[in-house]
């Protein structure tokens, strides 16, 4: 177990290093430098700015400085006009909790909705239940989350006036963005749950439990669901990644001041150091989550042999 965990963590660290390097070099090849947007009148001011951002050094030297800064947890400063000079880590630290709250709500909606739909589709004897669930699943993978968000705003917010759609002040504010964010994961989880549930229900231990007189409900909850959840746990990592990147557009549609909003405004302002900082932060987060999901599913499922 320890060896497996160690190996996964090492791979994660190397991946993160590659990501940091790739973003550095991509941004170096991008036309325009951080100081070109500043109006620097004198040659000295220009020189000072060059020195501040280490632009007077060669690219390999800049690379070493950059990587050692990242290792010390220094992700640079924002260059956008209204947040200029603020540390990237501060901006991320301020905005990420908002995204995390929204993400948690969406995560719960996705799990409950997806597992519910998938189980219903697998167990119901009625054909229309199965068809309905699969229809929702297909809609979920076909309708981009931000488009769903726009449609919901038009119908529920503008035409019917039942839900607020700006910011995250009240609990009701969470409903639309969290649902929009959760739709794609709901569809995927429903499909996963359905197929693994169908598989599990055919197993001998289910028949044994039934023949021993365990009520059907208990068999489903205690035996089948528990075993059918394994693929869903493995999917938790990718789902997390999806929700983070999905929040880029969802947050801008609903004017939510989360990390997605920070990323979008950095992109629109061509604030390269912020783009790099957010990319590395999100990359690290997703890689960690993937490792946790892998370890969790390995720990739960005795059939996965650790190599």
């Amino acid at each position: 177990m320890f060896k497996y965990v160690f190996k996964r963590v090492m791979v994660g660290v190397v991946t993160l290093f590659l990501l940091a390097s790739a973003t550095f070099f991509l941004m170096k090849f991008t036309p325009g430098s951080p100081i070109s947007s500043e109006r620097l009148k004198t040659e000295e001011a220009r020189q000072a700015a060059m020195e501040k951002y280490h632009l007077d050094k060669s690219i390999p030297e800049q690379y070493v400085i950059y990587i050692s800064n990242v290792l010390r947890g220094d992700l640079g400063e924002s260059m956008t006009a209204n947040t200029k000079g603020q540390k990237a880590t501060d901006l991320i630290g301020k905005s990420f909790p908002v995204t995390a709250r929204l993400g948690t709500v969406a995560f719960i909606i996705a799990l409950v909705g997806g597992i519910g739909l998938g189980t219903a589709a697998a167990l119901s004897k009625r054909k229309w239940v199965n068809n309905l669930c699969m229809f929702v699943a297909t809609i979920g993978v076909s309708v981009p989350s931000f488009l769903l968000a726009l449609l919901m705003i038009i119908v529920l917010g503008v035409w019917l006036h039942v839900l607020p759609f700006i910011g995250l002040k009240t609990p009701a504010n969470y409903i639309m963005p969290a649902t929009a964010l959760a739709l794609y994961p709901i569809a995927t989880i429903a499909r996963l749950t359905r197929s693994s549930m169908l598989e599990v229900m055919k197993q001998d231990y289910i028949i044994l439990a039934r023949s021993k007189g365990t009520p059907y409900k208990m068999v489903v909850i205690k035996h089948a669901l528990k075993n059918a959840m394994l693929p869903v746990i493995t999917y938790a990592g990718p789902m997390f990644a999806f929700m983070l990147t999905g929040s880029f557009v969802i947050e801008s549609v609903f004017s939510i001041p989360g990390i997605g909003q920070v990323m979008v405004s950095s992109i629109q302002n061509r604030d390269y150091s912020m783009i790099m900082a957010v990319t590395i932060f999100l990359g690290a987060l997703v890689i960690t989550f993937n490792i946790l999901a892998d370890i969790l599913s390995a720990a739960i499922d005795p059939r996965i042999k650790l190599k």
Partner: peptide, 9 residues
């Protein structure tokens, strides 16, 4: 790595 990140990059 979330693919959207490097697509954006």
């Amino acid at each position: 790595i979330p693919d959207m990140l490097y697509v954006i990059m």
